[in-house]
Design a protein around this nucleic acid. Sequence first.
DNA 1: GTGGTCTAGACCACT
DNA 2: GTGGTCTAGACCACC
Lengths: 140, 140, 140, 140
Amino acid sequence: MGIEFQIGVGGNLPIYRQLIDQVRYGIASGSLEIGEKLPSVRSLSEQLVVNHNTVAKAYNELVREGVLESRHGKGVFVGPQRERYTKAEKNRRLSASLDAFLSEARSLGLDDKQITTAVSERLSQLKKEFAEQQTGQNKT
Amino acid sequence: MGIEFQIGVGGNLPIYRQLIDQVRYGIASGSLEIGEKLPSVRSLSEQLVVNHNTVAKAYNELVREGVLESRHGKGVFVGPQRERYTKAEKNRRLSASLDAFLSEARSLGLDDKQITTAVSERLSQLKKEFAEQQTGQNKT
Amino acid sequence: MGIEFQIGVGGNLPIYRQLIDQVRYGIASGSLEIGEKLPSVRSLSEQLVVNHNTVAKAYNELVREGVLESRHGKGVFVGPQRERYTKAEKNRRLSASLDAFLSEARSLGLDDKQITTAVSERLSQLKKEFAEQQTGQNKT
Amino acid sequence: MGIEFQIGVGGNLPIYRQLIDQVRYGIASGSLEIGEKLPSVRSLSEQLVVNHNTVAKAYNELVREGVLESRHGKGVFVGPQRERYTKAEKNRRLSASLDAFLSEARSLGLDDKQITTAVSERLSQLKKEFAEQQTGQNKT
DNA sequence: GTGGTCTAGACCACT
DNA sequence: GTGGTCTAGACCACC
């Protein structure tokens, strides 16, 4: 299966972050299967016309997180996706992340309603973008 | 007017972060007026039974952000609350903060619905806690 | 590459401010490269014979400003140094800072010439100190 | 003698800061003599078409500093301008203020030359503005 | 190992 | 009295 990477549209996120999100979304949605090989750093960087360091940075971060596995001389693969956290641990991490966001949003003057709106709008925007990428271009 | 500070409940946020959020919420909600004096570092630390450095850390961060003003030997006051960011800058900051949260949430395996639910639940929880603080205990 | 930290000389600035300035100067001058790891909080505190909290305070302030990045359990690194402000915003901040200084200087009775002299003298003093630090001692 | 207050032009400073600077400059230049009565808060606020709180804020800060004296029911007057600080004290205060400015300027990416240029340009700009105010309009 | 948070207590400077 | 800085030492979480 695999996914078609795409950059540029999707807001003002740095490229490597866009790549990270696409891999994560791809795995979550089943487009990327466990053990599947990802495009090599060089080939993907050429395909997207970005610097290979940018791709490497994205892969590296995902490897660090345990999402991907790097096998020397072989390539980068989707990792086993073991449940890395207990439920309590997940809640703790989620809370920390959520609170950081809410604190920033509030300090920018958003009220509760504006916050929930911003979240749901961003989510549907991301969903739409991802769908478009996967339908449109199926060839390099 | 002023607000009643309270710590301990409401998640696993560090104390100084709780204090920061309470000041921000207090200003946003009008409970703290511009120019109003906040409790002194020492007195608040005694009231909350925390170290004075912890209170100072919270005040300090808000001073650095321009939310509060510190007048040496006099006390700490609510600052002029000038619009510190342009609209574009605000959007940029909000997006960055939101995307960081969404990225973390997704990597924890939450789908879109679970994310929006988590956000709105946390918001109503915070609202409730803040309301309780301001009504309930007016004495130490 | 990296820089050699040093404290004590150079005026009556608090230690953590001296460290902040040295990091900023190091980055601006190219001695600290993007992505480079800084000495750990503990090791630097031992090297300088100051408390680790003092070093952490300096690092922390720079992290909040976006100059440094902290990776939990890994260390503190020089951040991407993206342009954090628009040109207009930079001018606004500079003006505010300059006017605050001029206001204080004038209230102390300095005339225009004395002010410009004070500025240029302090600048060359700082330059000299920084140069000495980077050449002289390469051992603790 | 007295001075003619004027607001609006002179950069993006808040009004109350402009007023403070004009009083200070007026005293330093001899336009305002010791013991001289300043316009009342209400009359000056009407003359400048600003809120009386803004004028009061400027006067209050100057009273706090000892530059002006407030005599209840009489008005606000230029204070005795005693040397409030020893020479060492003055140097200490000046250094603190200067270092704060230099630190900010450097964090905004200005090099030494840009800093000195910014200072001298702002000084001559302020001088020019003040001169214009005192020559132009001598009536309300 | 790393950074993050907190306590306890000290001294300084400003007012 | 006020806030600001620093030390010494503790515990936690992440890696």
